[in-house]
Design a protein around this nucleic acid. Structure first.
Length: 1156
RNA sequence: GCUCGGGUGGCGGAAUAGGUAGACGCGCAGGACUUAAAAUCCUGUUGGCAGCAAUGUCAGUACGGGUUCGAUUCCCGUCCCGAGCACCA
C-alpha cells in the first residue's frame, strides 16, 4: 500500500466525482465566470487516440486552476454528431446512423472519463439530437427572415424591409443583396404575393440560388470549397465537378468586412487570423468599364455555344459528357414538376398533338421543359422567377443558344398554363404546324395555318442584336492608378463576352484556345510548370484615358471566378501581365517609377506600391496612393467606373444531398420556399429504407413521399451541412435543456462568450469562420450580448503517429505479378493467386514492371531477415487468409506463401550473396503523419491509462513540449513522469511504508522551494506553458525529497498546485491528509515573495564577456564595494594579468563583467 | 513564387525588456542496496585538447557578417525544415 499504484484509487475517485456531481456548474453565481471550451469531437468509429486528449487535458488544467482561483468555470463537452462518416457507414451496413453514432459517443465518453476530465456532463450537447437541432433550424429561420442593411451595418428583419418597400420601394434600400431591379412602392404593391416573395429571396440572408457548386457524384453531394482539394473531395478523394444546382446559401459575404475587422479584437493565433484574412480576401481598387473600339465592326457573330469541341452542331448537340452531367438533374426535374408543367404534360403526352413530346430533355447544355424533336420545337413553362431582369436575360441567352441549334422556342408562364391550358395547347399546335418536320419520328402531320410561334413569343433580342456600342467590358483593378499603362485587356476564356466580340478571323483560334484552356486547368494543377498561353480575340477596346485602341485577349491566367473575369493588363507593373506581354510581343509602358526615377522595366515589372506616377497625364508626379484616389474620382466623374472593394469570400453553400443532417424547416409551394410554422420545429428526420445517395442530386429523403408531402407544400429534401450545428453549440452549453429558447437571455448575458477556446488549426477557414458569422448574426438580432464567440483561442498541435508504408504490386490484366531479379529465375512464382509482392520505395523508383499501390502497414518486425507476417497482416488489410505465414523481402519484392502448409524460408528463394540488400528501409517508408485507423499508427489512450494511470498520461502529454507544437507520439519519456508521481507519493510515507506527515514548522529552505513552485505554476498556467510547469513540479519534488520533507504545511499547498494536472493523486493524498471535503474547490495557495528574497547573491563574474568565477555579495552591497571585492579576487587577478581595467559592469542581482 | 512559423546535446525540450546556454525528462555509462532480479537511490553525460585526478583550456545555440562590456535573444545576408496561400488582377 505504500507504493504508488494509481489503479487503486483513480477509478474510485472518478466514480465519486460522478456520484457527487463534483463538476456540475451553476448558471448563477457571485463568482466571476470563466468559460473554457474544447472543439467538440466528431465521434468516429475508431475511438479516441492519444492525440485527441492533448487539448482536452490543457483545457481541463485551466478549468481546474481557474476553479481553485475562485471562478465559476463552465467546461462542457459534447459531440458534433451529424456527418458523412456515419452515413457512409450506414450505406455500407444498413445500420441507422443514429445507432452507430450513439455507440461511438458512448465509447468516446468512456474514454474521456478514463482520463478524469472535469466536464459537466449534464450540459452535454449532440448536434443530431432533435432537441438540439430544433434550434439549429430555428436559427436558419431567423436567417431566412433577415436581410443585411449596409447603412446600419447589421442584419434586420425582413418584415422591416417589406415596410420600406411598401413605403418607398427599394431605391433607398442599401442592402447586401442579389441584383434587383429598382421598383417604387406602387410597383411593389402591384406585384402579386409570389412575385414579392421572389424579390424578397434576393435579400434574405438564407436564400435559394442556382449556382455552380462542387458536385461529387461518388458521395452524392455538394461540397464546400474547403472540402475540395485539387479537384477531388477531401474525404475519399473522389472526383468533383462544377455543376449548376439550386441550393440554399447563407449570405456570409454580408459579414465579410466585419469578420475581417473584428479579427483585431480577438486574441487568436496570428497564423490563424492570417488564414481568415486570406480567405476573406479583401482588396481595394476600382471597377472600370472599357468600351469596345468602334473599329471592330467587321466581326461576324460566332454563335456556336461553347461545346468544348466534342459535339456536333444541331440538336444532337448534347455531348455525352454534358448528358452524363445533365441527366440526373433531368430525372430529378421530372419528379419535381411544377403544377403548370404537369398540367401541360397531360395535354402533350402520348402523341396527343400528333407528335411525340419529351419532357425535361437535355438539349445542348440545357434541360428544356418540353421538346418535340422531329419538329425541333421547344416549349418552356416558367414560374414568376423568370420575371426578373436578370433571368429574362438568362432566358434570352438560352433561347438564343437553342435557336443556334436549330430549335424554335416558345415560352409560357405558369399562370398562362394554369388559367388557359387549352389556349396554350393551341398555340403549341400552331407552332408545330409551322415547323418544318425533320424526317423519321412522328406521323408528319402538318397543320393548316402557319403561324410562327417563335416570332410570336415576343423574345427580347439576343445580345448580338443590340447596338454594338453598348458592349462594355468591366474589370476590377487594385491599381487603377496604372491605367495609363494598360496596353491590352485579358478576359477569362469562360467570359460571357468572348463569343460575342471574337472576330471571324480569330474565331477558330479562339475556340481552339477555349478548348485547350478547359482541358489544361486539370493538367496544370498536376504540374507546377507555368506556361504563358493566350489568344487574341480580334477585338479592340478603348483605353478611356490614353484614348488608344488596345487589343483584347483571352488567357487562362485570368480567372472567371474572381472579380469580373476580365482585367486591364498593365504589363509594366504586374508580373503576370509582363510575362504575357513579353511572350506575345505586346507593348509595355512604364507609368510608375521610384523617387530617383531609377526604375527599369526591361527585365521585370515594377510592382512596388510606393512609387511616383509618370507618363500618366493628369496623374504625373503623384504618389501611388494619391494617384489612386485621383483616378477613382475621375472615373466616377466620367461615369465609367467607381471605387470598389472586392472580396474573395463567397456565400456559403448550405445544402447537402444527404440523409444524416438537419432537415430544413422549409416547404415549397409553387416553387417558392416558405418556413414551416415555428410550432412544427423541430422538423425531424424520418426513417428511410436506404441511405444511399440517389446519384441524381437529391437526398435519400426525397424518396419518402409521406414525409415530403405536407398539407402546406413539399418539404425541402436536402439537409444542412456538417458545420450548421457546430456554428452555435458554444451557446447551447450555457443553457442546454431550455425547451423554449436556444438559450435564455439572462444566462447568455452571464456567460457572454468563451474565454478560452482550444482546438486544431485545421478549422481556420471552416468552422471558425462560420461560428463567427453566426455569432455576429445572433448579436445583430439582439439574442446575444457579444459579437465574437471566443476571446482567446489556442491551436493545440497535432500528435502524430509514425506510420509505415510499403509498395504493393498489383496484378496485371492476366492476373500475374512480375517477379524480377533472381526470384524470376527460380521459376513459376508469378501467379497472383499464390503470392503477393511488396516492393521497396527504391524499386518503385526504378520502375518496377507492374502497377504499384502505396499502402499503410502496421509496424513491421524483421528477425534474421524473416518478416513476421503476424505483425504485417491484419484482417482489415485483407492481404492473406493465413496469418502464420512468413513474408520475404528483397530489394525488389517481399512475398509469402498463401498456403499455410507451404513453408518457405528465405534461403529457398534467395541467394544469400545478395542478402545485404535486405534492409528495412528498402521496403518500408516510415513517415510521421496524422494518427488514423487506416494508417495503423494509432495509440489508444486507454492503453496508457491502463499501464501508467490517468495522471501519468495527463502529465506526460503536457510534458511532451509546447502545446501549440505538433510532435510525433513516442512513449520514451512516460516512465520519467510515472517515476515523478512515485516520488511525490513517497514524500507522504515513512520508511516502513506507513502514511506519515509531520506538523512541524517548515524551514526557510522548504518554504522557498514551495513558493518557487507556486509562483511558477500560476505563471505558467496563465501563459499556457504547461510543459515547464511539469518540470517545476519535478524539481520541487526532487528538492523536497532531498530534504526528506514530509511537512503538512509544505505538502498541502503543493497538492493544490498539482491538482489541476494530476487530480486523482492530489485528491487521494488530500483525503489521506484527513480532509473530508475534496480538493477541487480549495483556494489556490497564495504566492509570498518574502520566502524567495535572498540577502546575498552569487554573482557570475565574467572577464571580457567570459564567465570565470562566482563571487557572493550581499544584495544591498554598493557598486564600489563589489568592485573592490571583485578586483581583490584571486581568479580575477589571474585573468587581469596586471592589465589596466577598462570598464566595470555591475548589474545588481544579475552579473558582473570586467573589461580589460 | 508570396506570407507566417522554426533550426539549441544521442532524443523530447528549457532559457529571449540582451546578462552563468543546455533546466526538467528520456537514453546511455558507472555505482549503492540485494543471494539475485525488480523497485529505489547516488554520480557522470555538448564537443575537442591536456591531465592518473581534482581540474584546466579552447570551441560551441543552422551558416556568414554587424551592433554591444556582453548576442541563442537585436539588425543585415545565405541555407535548410514545417505550415498556409497560390495565377485574387
Amino acid at each position: 500500500m505504500s507504493s504508488y499504484n494509481p489503479k487503486e484509487f483513480e477509478k474510485e475517485w472518478q466514480k465519486r466525482w460522478k456520484e457527487n456531481h463534483a463538476y456540475k456548474v451553476e448558471n448563477h453565481s457571485t463568482k466571476p465566470k470563466y468559460y473554457v471550451l474544447d472543439m467538440f469531437p466528431y465521434p468516429s468509429g475508431a475511438g479516441l487516440h492519444v492525440g485527441h486528449p492533448l487539448g482536452y487535458i490543457a483545457s481541463d488544467i485551466v478549468s481546474r486552476y481557474k476553479r481553485h482561483k475562485g471562478f465559476n468555470v463552465l467546461h462542457p463537452m459534447g459531440f458534433d454528431a451529424f456527418g458523412l462518416p456515419a452515413e457512409q457507414y450506414a450505406i455500407q451496413t444498413g445500420q441507422h446512423p443514429a445507432v452507430t453514432t450513439a455507440q461511438n459517443i458512448a465509447r468516446y465518453k468512456e474514454q474521456l472519463d478514463n482520463i478524469g476530465f472535469s466536464y459537466d456532463w449534464s450540459r452535454e450537447v449532440q448536434t443530431c439530437d432533435p432537441e438540439y437541432y430544433k434550434w439549429t433550424q430555428w436559427i436558419f429561420c431567423r436567417l431566412f427572415e433577415s436581410w443585411y442593411d449596409k447603412s446600419a451595418d447589421r442584419a434586420r428583419s425582413i418584415s422591416e424591409l417589406e415596410e420600406i418597400f411598401n413605403k418607398e420601394g427599394n431605391a433607398t434600400v442599401n442592402a447586401h443583396s442579389d441584383e434587383t431591379p429598382v421598383f417604387t412602392a406602387e410597383e411593389w404593391k402591384a406585384k402579386n404575393h409570389e412575385e414579392q416573395q421572389q424579390i424578397l429571396l434576393n435579400y434574405r440572408l438564407a436564400y435559394l440560388a442556382d449556382q455552380m457548386v462542387n458536385w461529387c457524384p461518388e458521395l452524392g453531394t455538394v461540397l464546400a470549397n474547403e472540402e475540395v482539394k485539387d479537384g477531388v473531395s477531401e474525404r475519399g478523394g473522389y472526383p468533383v465537378f462544377r455543376v449548376n444546382m439550386r441550393q440554399w446559401f447563407l449570405r456570409i459575404t454580408a459579414y465579410a468586412e466585419r469578420l475581417l475587422d473584428d479579427l483585431d479584437t480577438i486574441d487568436w493565433p496570428e497564423p490563424l487570423k492570417e488564414q481568415q484574412r486570406n480567405w476573406i480576401g479583401r482588396s481595394e481598387g476600382a471597377s472600370i468599364f472599357f468600351e469596345l473600339a468602334p473599329g471592330y465592326s467587321d466581326l461576324t457573330p460566332s454563335p456556336s455555344p461553347k461545346e468544348r469541341g466534342d459535339a456536333e452542331p444541331g440538336w444532337k448537340g448534347t455531348s455525352q459528357e454534358d448528358w452524363k452531367t445533365l441527366m440526373p438533374f433531368a430525372r430529378e426535374n421530372r419528379k419535381n414538376n411544377t403544377e403548370a408543367e404537369n398540367e401541360l404534360w397531360q395535354l402533350l403526352r402520348d402523341n396527343k398533338l400528333g407528335q411525340r413530346f419529351r419532357r425535361q430533355h437535355a438539349i445542348g447544355k440545357f434541360i428544356v421543359d418540353f421538346v418535340c424533336l422531329p419538329a425541333k420545337l421547344v416549349v418552356e413553362v416558367d414560374g414568376s422567377i423568370h420575371d426578373s431582369e436578370e433571368n429574362k436575360e438568362l432566358d434570352a441567352g438560352r433561347t438564343y443558344e437553342l435557336e443556334q441549334l436549330g430549335f424554335k422556342v416558345i415560352r409560357f408562364t405558369n399562370d398562362e398554363v394554369l388559367k388557359n391550358p387549352y389556349s396554350v395547347r393551341d398555340q403549341i399546335k400552331a407552332a408545330l404546324a409551322a415547323s418544318p418536320l425533320s424526317f423519321g419520328e412522328g406521323s408528319g402531320v402538318r397543320s393548316e395555318n402557319g403561324i410562327s410561334a417563335g416570332e410570336d413569343a415576343g423574345l427580347p433580342p439576343s445580345p448580338l442584336e443590340r447596338g454594338r456600342g453598348e458592349v462594355r467590358i468591366e474589370v476590377f483593378s487594385t491599381r487603377p492608378d496604372t491605367i495609363y499603362g494598360a496596353t491590352f485587356m485579358v478576359l477569362a476564356p469562360e467570359h460571357e463576352l468572348v463569343q460575342q466580340i471574337t472576330t471571324a478571323e480569330q474565331k477558330t483560334e479562339v475556340e481552339k484556345y477555349i478548348e485547350y484552356a478547359g482541358k489544361r486547368s486539370e493538367r496544370d494543377r498536376m504540374s507546377e510548370v507555368k506556361t504563358v498561353t493566350g489568344c487574341f480575340t480580334g477585338a479592340y477596346a478603348l483605353n478611356p484615358f490614353t484614348g488608344k485602341q488596345i487589343p483584347v485577349w483571352i488567357a487562362d491566367y485570368v480567372l472567371a471566378g474572381y472579380g469580373t473575369g476580365a482585367v486591364m493588363a498593365v504589363p509594366g507593373h504586374d508580373s503576370r501581365d509582363y510575362a504575357f506581354a513579353k511572350h506575345f510581343g505586346l507593348s509595355i509602358v512604364q507609368v510608375v517609377t521610384d523617387k530617383d526615377n531609377s526604375v527599369s522595366i526591361d527585365e521585370e515589372a515594377y510592382e512596388a506600391k510606393d512609387g511616383i506616377l509618370i507618363n500618366s497625364d493628369i496623374l504625373n508626379g503623384l504618389a501611388v496612393p494619391e494617384a489612386k484616389k485621383r483616378i477613382i474620382a475621375e472615373l466616377e466623374k466620367l461615369g465609367i467606373g467607381k471605387g470598389k472593394t472586392n472580396f474573395r469570400l463567397r456565400d456559403a453553400g448550405f445544402s447537402r444531398q444527404r440523409y444524416w443532417g438537419e432537415p430544413f424547416p422549409v416547404v415549397y409551394r409553387n416553387g417558392l420556399p416558405y418556413l414551416v410554422d415555428e410550432s412544427e420545429l423541430p422538423v425531424t428526420l424520418p426513417d428511410v429504407q436506404s441511405y444511399k445517395p440517389t446519384g441524381d442530386g437529391s437526398s435519400p429523403l426525397a424518396a419518402i413521399e409521406e414525409w415530403v408531402n405536407t398539407p402546406n407544400g413539399k418539404r425541402e429534401t436536402n439537409t444542412m451541412p456538417g458545420w450548421a450545428g457546430s456554428s452555435w453549440y458554444f451557446l447551447r452549453y450555457m443553457d442546454p435543456n431550455n425547451a423554449n429558447e436556444f438559450a435564455s437571455k439572462d444566462i447568455v448575458d452571464y456567460w457572454q462568450n468563451v474565454d478560452l477556446y482550444l482546438g486544431g488549426s485545421e478549422h481556420a477557414t471552416g468552422h471558425l469562420l462560420y461560428v463567427r458569422f453566426w455569432t455576429k448574426f445572433l448579436y445583430d438580432i439582439g439574442k446575444i450580448p457579444v459579437a465574437e464567440p471566443a476571446r482567446k483561442l489556442i491551436n493545440q498541435g497535432m500528435i502524430q503517429g509514425v506510420s509505415q508504408k510499403i509498395y504493393r504490386a498489383l496484378p496485371d490484366e492476366d492476373g500475374k505479378i512480375p517477379l524480377i531479379y533472381s526470384i524470376k529465375d527460380k521459376g513459376n512464382y508469378t501467379s497472383a493467386d499464390a503470392y503477393e509482392i511488396f516492393v521497396s520505395e527504391e524499386a518503385a523508383k526504378d520502375g518496377y514492371p507492374s502497377k504499384l499501390q502505396l499502402i499503410h502497414v502496421p509496424i513491421i518486425h524483421v528477425d534474421n531477415g524473416v518478416l513476421n507476417i503476424q505483425s504485417l497482416i491484419k484482417d482489415d488489410i485483407d492481404l492473406i487468409s493465413d496469418k502464420d505465414s512468413n513474408v520475404f523481402i528483397t530489394k525488389y519484392g517481399a512475398w509469402y506463401a498463401n498456403s499455410a502448409t507451404y513453408e518457405m524460408t528465405f534461403e529457398n528463394f534467395f541467394d544469400y550473396s545478395d542478402s545485404e540488400v535486405l534492409h528495412k528501409d528498402f521496403y518500408t517508408v516510415p513517415e510521421i503523419e496524422k494518427m488514423s485507423k487506416s494508417k495503423w499508427n494509432v495509440v489508444n489512450p486507454d492503453d496508457m491509462v491502463e499501464k501508467y494511470g490517468a495522471d501519468t498520461l495527463r502529465l506526460y502529454e503536457m510534458f511532451l513540449g509546447p502545446l501549440e507544437q505538433s510532435k510525433p507520439w513516442n512513449t520514451n519519456g512516460i516512465e520519467g513522469v510515472y517515476r515523478f508521481l512515485g516520488k511525490l507519493w513517497r514524500l507522504f510515507f515513512n520508511d516502513k511504508g506507513e502514511f506519515e506527515v509531520s506538523d512541524a514548522e517548515p524551514t526557510k529552505e522548504e518554504l522557498k522551494i514551495l513558493h518557487k513552485t507556486i509562483k511558477k505554476t500560476a505563471e505558467d498556467i496563465e501563459n499556457f506553458s504547461f510543459n515547464t510547469t511539469v518540470s517545476a513540479f519535478m524539481i520541487c519534488v526532487n528538492e523536497l525529497g532531498q530534504l526528506k520533507c514530509n511537512k503538512r504545511a509544505v505538502l498541502e499547498p503543493l497538492l493544490v498546485c498539482l491538482s489541476p494536472y494530476a487530480p486523482h493523486i492530489a485528491e487521494e493524498l488530500w483525503a489521506r491528509l484527513g480532509h473530508t471535503e475534496g480538493i477541487l474547490d480549495v483556494q489556490f495557495p497564495e504566492f509570498n515573495n518574502q520566502y524567495l528574497v535572498e540577502n546575498s547573491f552569487s554573482y557570475p563574474v565574467s572577464i571580457n564577456g567570459k564567465t570565470r568565477v562566482q563571487i557572493e555579495f550581499p544584495l544591498d552591497a554598493s557598486e564600489d564595494s563589489v568592485k573592490d571585492g571583485v578586483l581583490a579576487n584571486e581568479t580575477v587577478q589571474k585573468w587581469l594579468e596586471g592589465k589596466p581595467l577598462k570598464k566595470f559592469i555591475f548589474v545588481k542581482g544579475r552579473i558582473i563583467n570586467v573589461v580589460v
